[in-house]
Design a protein around this nucleic acid. Sequence first.
DNA 1: TTGTATGCGTTATCAC
DNA 2: GTGATAACGCATACAA
Lengths: 367, 367
Amino acid sequence: MTRPDSPPDSPTARPDPQRTVSLADVAQLAGVSPGTVSRALSKPEMISAATRQRVLVAAERLGYVANGAARALAMRKTNTVGALVPRFGGSSFPTLVQALETTLALRGYTLLLSAPDHARYQAEAPAILRALLERGIDALALLGADQPPAVFSLLAAHRLPFVLLWAEQSAHGPCVGFDEQAAAALVVDHLADLGHRRIGFIGGRTADNDRARRRFSGLLQAVARRGLTLVQEATLETEYGFREGFEAMQAVLWASQALPPTAMVCGNDYLAAGALSALDQAGVAVPARMSVASFNDNDFAAFLHPPLTTVRVPIRRIGELAGQHLLAQLQGEMAPQPEPLPLRLVVRGSTGPAGDAATARARRAGG
Amino acid sequence: MTRPDSPPDSPTARPDPQRTVSLADVAQLAGVSPGTVSRALSKPEMISAATRQRVLVAAERLGYVANGAARALAMRKTNTVGALVPRFGGSSFPTLVQALETTLALRGYTLLLSAPDHARYQAEAPAILRALLERGIDALALLGADQPPAVFSLLAAHRLPFVLLWAEQSAHGPCVGFDEQAAAALVVDHLADLGHRRIGFIGGRTADNDRARRRFSGLLQAVARRGLTLVQEATLETEYGFREGFEAMQAVLWASQALPPTAMVCGNDYLAAGALSALDQAGVAVPARMSVASFNDNDFAAFLHPPLTTVRVPIRRIGELAGQHLLAQLQGEMAPQPEPLPLRLVVRGSTGPAGDAATARARRAGG
DNA sequence: TTGTATGCGTTATCAC
DNA sequence: GTGATAACGCATACAA
């Protein structure tokens, strides 16, 4: 210790107002050694009740707050988990991140958030990941299985536990997600059962993310299986967003006016809400003249009116499970068994292409 | 150095596969001292081009990544900024946080996110803040001026630069926000100009957050100033959210059926979207039979249909400015002058209580 | 149970 | 320009 001791009986007992109070300060005030303070704080059971009490009081009096950097340096762990999630304003990622953060916080971990936009991440993923690694994280959650090539090798090189959020079956590492194809099948089967034959789709950009890709491919499969027609002029990709859904639906109405689809499927509820607004503005009655169905990422589509049939997708649960998965890895436990996440079709005011009578018939027939 | 040197000519040149590569390793490979490596990496201009090159190559070969904890310990700064933001799934906070993160990331800072729910934060704010302090942050952004009492004293005790997001004029510290009262006035004046006399309000909980409180009080003032009537049965508080807006609007329709308001103001666009859905479901034509106006927190209400008149509120800008403010504090510069954030009224399909003719007259008259 | 001593990986202050 | 060396604040193995 180089810092000169200040008179222990000085009025305020704060030696140097500039310096932040450290273990040594607490030790001095409590009249014990620094090691004892360290143990009293983090391994109370190793210390006698009496001294522990003295230490606690001293720490309290001084307003001691541990220095995480020093601790991290000594313990070689930061109690911090990184989250690498693209730009999420106006998406459903916040819900996911929130759930992840909550799960981690309950176990004493903090979340370090990095939210580059898509373009920047594609361009400089290694640098972004590296910044996270430098800052010090014990584990990492990444959104989607679609990662730039360098990412996985960096993770491997640093032996960093990680999990892919909202992804299925990646060869690259553990994933937490759900069966997008099944979700798409639920929607399409429902529409087919109602008697719809020609449907359209407004979805996210398949080039950008594997979620949109899987959702779309699931749709294609189900459409083929049920012998439906996916109307080309009524099928397009866009960014996720309310405005985007609105404009996409306008475009669809215009492009397919010769022979429009009787039902539209939207890739998420922002798109669906926008699409409904566009239909309303265009005077297209829903669901009488056109049905709309959607994937309910945001707990959101379930309350739209005109009513929308949705597949309720467990976003929050992904965050929780991912957190648990990471925590398990960090504790050296086995990862929890990959329970399949439940999907639920919420049917609201659906109608077949020929109106309610046909719909009732279809319901009796199809299930 | 206690670790035994491995033969420098070993095939893979990786001494100990378990250990993470450090400055010393790079130094050894480059044949220079650790100090030189440190400088070559962080203060390149202090090093000759030749050795710098050698160091860079060595670092690259070894996949060196700096240890932030050690750096933080030595430099007494973490290059990390904390954000303490309550539950933000389904709110407009993500937009704000995203903007903050982007602003900080561009200047080399990372964001440590803590997102407790409101109840937990009220109950254990000191513990939550303390966790952030322990983890090591150079500055902190907090949402709202409403903070539990212990928070500001903790911040002061640790001399931590901070800023209050989406808040005005708090005596406790610097704020970045906009004039909620003016925003409310824009909406109310617009409705009054159209000839509305009786309006209702669905807003956030004023007990929980000062934003809702200010928004509501601004509304009250403007209503009084224009001599309007705020219909009691059509005025209520709720959580922010789509579902909440839907249910609140249903409640309003029921409670005020004797003499309903001719216009509803909603506290944010989630509430407004929900309210529109409820009106649609109830068969209330908008805006013919009832006008709806809202504060557009999410870039969202501007695309709803039936159309909604909104005050466009600069959430993103708050995040950016807060980031700049913190960065300025961290660099010891003066904080940027508190430029007033712009508010804009976006008029869409508004109608007066007696229909379009009256509206046209009112527009000519009122402005 | 408690004190002592050392290392964690960097940066910074000196000399050279 | 570059190399030694001393902090930075904490945890922990080892002694007592």
